[in-house]
């Protein structure tokens, strides 16, 4: 899976978890760009990504991400 395909998959996960069909992520998207992406929904998003993409993150990894693109890079590195 390349980065663009992964972005589409992660976008679908965000739409599902946040129940918002209008979400359109790009590599530079951050939590402040997405309504309802707060500290609590962040947990649900990470859990959903781990479950659906079948990856496991460490707390250190998720703390290092500055935007969606860095999350995707982390997934692709595994």
């Amino acid at each position: 899976m390349n980065k663009d395909e992964l972005l589409k998959n992660v976008n679908e996960i965000f739409i599902d978890v946040l129940d918002d069909e209008t979400i359109l992520l790009d590599y530079s998207t951050t939590a402040s760009d997405v309504e309802d992406w707060d500290s609590l929904t962040h947990i649900q998003l990470v859990v959903a990504v781990e479950k659906k993409i079948k990856v496991k993150f460490t707390s250190k990894e998720i703390q290092s991400w500055n935007n969606v693109g860095e999350m995707l890079d982390c997934i692709l590195s595994k």
């Binding site: 962040h42 947990i43 990470v46 859990v47 781990e50 479950k51 496991k56 993150f57 460490t58 707390s59 990894e61 998720i62």
Partner: peptide, 11 residues
């Protein structure tokens, strides 16, 4: 069912 160390969450 699963443990998510990244976000300290247990399912």
């Amino acid at each position: 069912n699963d443990f998510y160390e990244s976000v300290k969450t247990v399912e």
